[in-house]
């Protein structure tokens, strides 16, 4: 952190001499400290999964959701500061609603990513605000089929076959790259997503976590849904099995 004390990291409206915006980079650090979030775009749908690190054992399971619906066909998975993610989800919902009001059809994925990207970028341009401390995965099914986008704190966004953010992103990306996503069904992707989340989870540092799993696929009629309990159990069994197989290989 050589930038500390130079004075160029205090405002997002001042560049450093080598052309960086340190506040945006710090926002990225907030994302890196958060539980892993992953998205998989496969042939018949999108699967979003989050490793939700539980702050307290007294929290009711299912609280502080990190994957939420923004329309019937939109799932939003977030990684970073929880309060910021709630604001982002509200914004995505507003955009989805306004698009329906004006055009009478569900918002396409590319338009949603563009709109959210522009909104997030605006918070990197004024000294009166700070950038969002969160990255957002947008999983959608529109007329062009399943779509996955990620919007970063800088406002940059790209479309992905699969992506990962948060603490375990390096491990998760390595695992995701091995998958044959184009031939995979959403049903299979649920299993792989669960395995990746369990693989990326660092048991030494973070003990407890709750797995959030959602999908949009042909099986859900193009609607965002939380993955049913039976499928989650099946996926967790698959994840546990492949993890222990890996352990055996190591020995």
């Amino acid at each position: 952190m050589t930038s500390i004390g130079t004075g160029y990291d205090l405002s997002v409206s001042t560049y450093s001499p080598d052309g960086r915006l340190f506040q945006v980079e710090y926002a990225g650090k907030a994302v890196d400290n958060s539980g892993t979030a992953i998205g998989l775009r496969v042939k018949d749908g999108v699967v979003l999964a989050v490793e939700k690190l539980t702050q307290s054992k007294m929290l009711v399971p299912g609280s502080n959701l990190r994957i939420q619906a923004a329309d019937r066909h939109i799932g939003i998975a977030t990684s970073g500061l929880l309060a910021d993610t709630k604001h982002i989800v509200n914004r995505v919902r507003d955009e989805a609603r306004s698009y329906r009001d004006i055009y009478g059809i569900p918002i396409p994925a590319k338009v949603m990513a563009e709109r959210l990207g522009l909104y997030v970028q605006a918070y990197t341009s004024y000294s009166s605000v700070r950038p969002f401390g969160c990255s957002t995965l947008i999983g959608m099914v529109d007329e062009d089929g399943p779509q996955l986008y990620m919007v970063e704190p800088s406002g940059n966004f790209w479309g992905y076959h699969a992506c990962a953010v948060g603490k375990g992103k390096q491990v998760a990306r390595t695992e995701l790259e091995k998958l044959k996503l184009a031939d995979m069904t959403a049903r299979q992707a649920i299993k792989e997503a669960t395995r990746v989340i369990y693989t990326a989870h660092d048991e030494a540092k973070d003990k407890e976590f709750e797995l959030e799993l959602t999908w949009i696929s042909d099986e859900t009629n193009g609607r965002f849904e939380r993955v049913p309990k039976e499928l989650v159990a099946e996926a967790e069994a698959y994840a546990a099995e492949s993890l222990s197989a890996e352990m055996d290989d190591d020995e």
Binding site: Q68, A69, D71, R72, R93, A96, D101, E225
Partner: peptide, 15 residues
């Protein structure tokens, strides 16, 4: 019809 659709989507948020 538009209002009803909007209400149904609003309820859908809680999933």
């Amino acid at each position: 019809q538009d209002l009803l659709e909007k209400s149904m989507i609003h309820e859908f948020y809680t999933a």
